[in-house]
C-alpha cells in the first residue's frame, strides 16, 4: 500500500476530502454550539444557504473574498438570530422553525438572486485562492493534504481548537453546557438561560454562514442555486456522530468529505457505476454510519426543550 503511485493517488484524494469537509465542519461546529446550549438547530442548512448568498453579495460589494466571507457570516448570523428569537422567547417548536428557515432561505436567496441576474449583475465574484502555508506545506504527505488549501480551511483548523477550548476550559463553555444539560440549575446559579442560548444560536448561524460562504466564494467564486444540497443535514449528522465534541465531529466531517471526494474521483475515472449512484454515495454512507455507530449517544439533556417549561 505504500508504493509511491498509490500514495500519489491517495494524497490528492485526501486533500480534496479536507477541502470538501470544511463547509461541513463549519456548520458542524455551529451545530455543536447550538445543541450544547439546548437548542436543536435543523435550520443549519438554511443558514448555510444564506451564507452562500451573503458571501456572493459581500464579495460583489467589496470586491474581495474576505468581504464575501464576512458577508456570509453576517447572513448566517442574522438568520440564526431570527430563529433564536422565535425559538427562545416565543418557545415555538424548534424543528418546525428550523424547517421554516430552510424554506425561507431557499426562496429568499433565489428571489433576490434572480432579480439581480435580471438586472445584469454578474454571477461571478472574487473568490479565495489557495495559499500554501510556508514550511508546513512542504512536509511530505501531511503538507499537500492539509496545508495547500484556501485560507478558510486554515481558519477552520483554528476554530476547532478555539471551540474546544472555550467549551471545556472557560466559564463561558461551562455556562453553555450547564444551560444545555440542566437549565434550572443554570438559572438558579444566576445564569440567563435565554441570553446564553441566544448567543449560542447566533454563533452557530455565523459559523454555518461561513460554511456556506466556502461553497460560493471559496469553491467556485460565483453563485448558483442549489449549492448546499443537503450539507447542512450531513453536518448535523456529523454533530450527532461526533457526540457533540468538536474534535470527533471534525473526524466525522473528514469521513464524509472524503467519501464525497471519492465519489467525484470515481466519476472522473469513469468507474462503471452510474453517476447517480456515485452522487448518492455520501448520503448512503452517512446513513449507514449513523445506523451502525450511533446507538444512544447521549445528547445534551435539555436539547430541544424550551425553558422555562412552566410559567411562574
Amino acid at each position: 500500500m505504500n508504493s509511491p503511485i498509490e500514495l500519489a493517488m491517495l494524497i490528492p484524494l485526501l486533500a480534496a476530502g479536507v477541502r470538501l469537509a470544511t463547509p461541513l465542519l463549519y456548520s458542524a461546529l455551529g451545530g455543536i454550539i447550538s445543541e450544547r446550549s439546548g437548542v436543536t438547530n435543523i435550520g443549519l442548512e438554511g443558514m448555510m444557504i444564506m451564507g452562500t448568498f451573503g458571501a456572493y453579495v459581500g464579495s460583489h460589494l467589496t470586491g474581495s473574498a474576505w468581504g464575501g466571507a464576512l458577508g456570509g457570516m453576517l447572513a448566517g448570523a442574522l438568520t440564526a438570530l431570527l430563529f433564536a428569537v422565535m425559538a427562545i422567547f416565543f418557545r415555538a417548536d424548534q424543528v418546525v422553525l428550523g424547517t421554516g428557515v430552510n424554506i425561507l432561505a431557499l426562496g429568499l436567496t433565489a428571489f433576490i438572486y434572480r432579480a439581480m441576474y435580471k438586472a445584469g449583475i454578474s454571477q461571478f465574484v472574487t473568490g479565495f485562492k489557495a495559499w500554501n502555508v510556508p514550511l508546513l506545506s512542504d512536509i511530505p504527505v501531511i503538507g499537500p493534504i492539509f496545508f495547500r488549501q484556501i485560507p478558510l480551511v486554515y481558519l477552520v483548523y483554528v476554530l476547532i481548537a478555539v471551540v474546544a477550548f472555550i467549551l471545556y476550559r472557560t466559564t463561558w463553555g461551562l455556562k453553555l453546557r450547564s444551560v444545555g444539560e440542566l437549565p434550572r440549575a443554570a438559572d438558579t446559579a444566576g445564569i440567563s438561560v435565554a441570553r446564553v442560548r441566544l448567543m449560542a444560536v447566533t454563533a452557530s448561524g455565523a459559523l454555518a454562514g461561513i460554511g456556506g460562504a466556502f461553497l460560493s466564494v471559496g469553491e467556485i467564486s460565483a453563485f448558483t442555486e442549489g449549492l448546499v444540497a443537503g450539507r447542512g443535514f450531513i453536518a448535523l449528522a456529523a454533530v450527532i456522530f461526533g457526540r457533540w465534541d468538536p474534535l470527533r465531529a471534525a473526524g466525522a466531517c473528514l469521513l464524509f468529505g472524503t467519501a464525497d471526494a471519492l465519489q467525484y474521483r470515481m466519476q472522473a475515472l469513469k468507474v462503471p457505476i452510474s453517476y447517480e449512484f456515485l452522487l448518492m454515495f455520501p448520503y448512503v454512507l452517512t446513513l449507514l454510519a449513523f445506523i451502525l455507530f450511533v446507538h444512544r449517544s447521549k445528547p445534551p439533556a435539555a436539547l430541544g426543550k424550551p425553558y422555562p417549561e412552566k410559567q411562574s
Binding site: L174, R177, S178, E181, L182, R184, A185, T188, A189, A301
Partner: peptide, 9 residues
C-alpha cells in the same frame, strides 16, 4: 428538593 446539579459535570 430536586438538586440543581448537572450530572455530567
Amino acid at each position: 428538593q430536586h438538586f440543581m446539579l448537572v450530572p455530567t459535570f
